[in-house]
Design a protein around this nucleic acid. Structure first.
Lengths: 343, 343
DNA sequence: CTGAAAGCGCTAACAG
DNA sequence: CTGTTAGCGCTTTCAG
């Protein structure tokens, strides 16, 4: 028995070149679809590739050229909105030579996930976390095509795909006010995520919520509740909210995952239907489920993911001036909202 | 302006070596925590690394040694059970130098995703799809540490983490029979996924369902309904099932995602509570939601993911004999099941 | 249009 | 304990 080959004895570009009776450079050109190859050679090389079942080593390619890998930093799993985004991204990637890889930001290590992706020589990257510093991201984007999802505010080296959070939130508030609600609470995540001026979606939703309340002369009824990002967190926060004094008649949750948790609390308390209205944001699939039937704002995560990849590919192709794509949100009214119950 | 540096001008191991006044090999040893380095040198090198903000190129490392990357093939997004698995995997990876990357199998291209991962020189890989040929997987596993999730049956080059699907299904059936149900339908995916002898979880659940019905003398009431893997598919299939003749009084769905879709159908039809009982499998978070309250089987995806990574790391450390870890499932009874309504 | 040669950044031997 | 020497598999000039 040979003493090597206890690991990965794979066919290289050299093997293909020999089999086809050409140089390695020629093979390289063929697999990259580069110009300057005769049809005859292309045919012979492709035959050899088939024959030997050759697969180029991404690592070796990445050292000189491209890795044909696009990265996406994934938030802590559990938020179905992200599923839509990945779906859209996958659609946009179909038919291209690029492969999407995701790196989970375990335990809030979003920088770790992003760096892991960068270390792996991705040719471009989609960033989702609203927590990464814009300045840090600018630096990264100087050396790597980057698209940021959700973050408003000007960027000079990366692109952005954003939903119009102001418009979306206004639609929510108009709907609730029209239904006669006065005590409308806003359920959102911790301060870091709603940092004023950060341009994060949640900072804008919070801001617009406050403005809408003020515009309606309801400042004194405004009530902001902070919670973690899981359904369990939202459930607990909502239980506390509804048990407290000045119970709101409507709750506007910052995203659907929180809304689902809030709904658990409302359901558990056995409140009569219509007693507490609930609105979410994102329109995850579950929102349309008849047992949930959540009024929410659709900002088409699928379209967002698709756009993000499209812009990334444009950047890889050479574009350098920053671009921004805004998605117009649409309110979907379902059974979780109702006119304020008569006092 | 320099005419290079329009891209990725990053600091290399050579820069660090120069800054620290040592050889590249020395730096390499330090970053790999290899033995044979004096403390003095280690300190100096680490200082230089900090100073220069050096990050080793994974591509270059992968060509000689390890990529410190573990891959997991991801099923088409939407199934929350997978979320649990990834969470568990992340936990097991915490504190190791390894990073998890996921490659989505878009449009049923599971082989594509797996190969993409292999091309990227992952040091090991977790495979989830029940559709990949065991023989194909064996070949892959000869050159790469592999752990298969869910698949029963003997393997000689890879490990497996499985739930005891027979026991889980028996618990489901015993529960339903005890409640007095006779007409129990089984909602599952297409034939490819339940291929007898494939050892896939769904093949065993189907088989055990049939055996349980037979053992109870209820063959003639057995009814297997095929559907796609999304909630929407399951909803449609269930609507048809409940509209047809011989409407079952209980439905056993192959997994929770299907069950949630089935629940949508049941809810929409406005059937009185308890009219049609429903059981799922996996115990996704949503199953415990009060608006859903689904009876289901918990097989701890978190533990599965954790185990898979643990075994992968063992293999990377040198183990070669195959191992299998079985998880004992537990039935969680919730409000979706009730005694058969009196005729 | 084709091939020879020079590395990309790193690690694995080995020699000192 | 430390440094030198060869490449890993690929792409990229740059001659022919």
């Amino acid at each position: 028995m040979s003493q090597r080959s206890n690991r990965r004895r794979s066919v290289t570009i050299e093997d293909v070149a020999q089999a086809a009776g050409v140089s390695r450079a020629a093979v390289s050109k063929v697999i990259r679809n580069a110009s300057g190859v005769s049809t005859a050679m292309r045919v012979r090389v492709n035959a050899a590739i088939q024959e030997l079942d050759y697969r180029p080593s991404v690592a070796a390619r990445a050292m000189r050229g491209a890795s044909y890998t696009l990265g996406i930093e994934t938030p802590p799993p559990g938020n179905q909105f992200f599923t839509q985004i990945v779906n859209g991204a996958g659609q946009a990637l179909d038919g291209t030579p690029y492969q999407l890889v995701m790196a989970p930001a375990n335990g809030g290590r979003e920088y770790g996930a992003i760096e892991a992706l960068a270390d792996r020589q991705v040719d471009g990257m989609v960033v989702v976390s609203p927590l990464v510093e814009p300045a840090w991201l600018e630096r990264l984007a100087e050396t790597l095509p980057v698209v940021m999802l959700g973050r408003h505010g000007a960027a000079s080296h990366y692109d952005a795909v954003v939903g119009d959070d102001v418009q979306g939130t206004r639609a929510v508030m108009a709907h609730l006010l029209e239904l006669g609600h006065r005590r409308i609470a806003h359920l959102t995540e911790r301060e870091a995520v709603t940092e004023p001026g950060s341009g994060s979606p949640h900072s804008l939703r919070l801001l617009t919520y406050r403005e809408s309340m003020a515009a309606a002369g309801l400042d004194r009824f405004a009530q902001v509740v902070r919670t973690g990002q899981t359904e369990a967190d939202a459930r607990l926060a909502t239980l506390a909210l509804l048990a407290g004094p000045d119970r709101p008649t409507a709750v506007f949750a910052g995203h659907d995952q929180l809304a689902v948790g809030a709904l658990a609390a409302i359901t558990e308390l056995g409140l009569p239907p219509g007693e507490v209205s609930l609105v979410g944001y994102d329109n995850i699939d579950l929102a349309g489920h008849p047992a949930i039937s959540l009024t929410t704002v659709d900002q088409s995560g699928t379209e967002m993911g698709r756009q993000a990849i499209t812009m990334l590919l444009e950047r890889i192709a050479g574009r350098t001036e920053p671009r921004r794509h805004t998605i117009t949100p649409v309110l979907h009214v379902r059974r979780s909202t109702a006119p304020r119950a008569a006092a």
